[in-house]
């Protein structure tokens, strides 16, 4: 009954990828928590201009979104490299 809808190849890089995922998750969580903590402890700081007349709220908020996108690409780059080097038979991309 159980098991994936599509047959998956064994993935020897799974443990390493999971470790990388946890590290990147912790990094992002710290940055996200930083935003929440500033909002709680010194909300006035979020209204202060930081770069190019933009206040910290705009820079940090937009920054969190852009950081998530950049980290996504970084994660994919390293995961793909790990999969290619550690799995003798590559998983085929559906394209």
């Amino acid at each position: 009954m159980h098991g994936p809808a599509a047959k998956l190849e064994a993935d020897k890089s799974a443990a390493k990828k999971a470790k990388l995922g946890v590290i990147l998750f912790l990094v992002y969580t710290l940055v996200y928590a930083g935003f929440v903590i500033i909002g709680l402890t010194d909300p006035e700081l979020l209204g202060k201009p930081i770069i190019g007349n933009q206040n910290l709220a705009i820079v940090y908020g937009f920054g969190l979104i852009i950081l998530a996108i950049i980290m996504g690409f970084v994660y994919n780059f390293f995961c793909t490299r790990m999969e290619d080097s550690m799995n003798s038979k590559k998983q085929e991309d559906k394209s």
């Binding site: 809808a5 799974a14 999971a18 969580t29 969190l64 980290m71 996504g72 994660y75």
Partner: peptide, 25 residues
């Protein structure tokens, strides 16, 4: 917006691949 997107970080880094491996439908 910030929170909704941050949620995807959890999905990508922790959940996406292992969950794909475990489930069917």
């Amino acid at each position: 917006s910030i929170g909704y997107l941050a949620g995807w970080v959890v999905a990508l880094f922790l959940v996406a691949e292992p969950l794909k491996k475990l489930g069917k439908y």
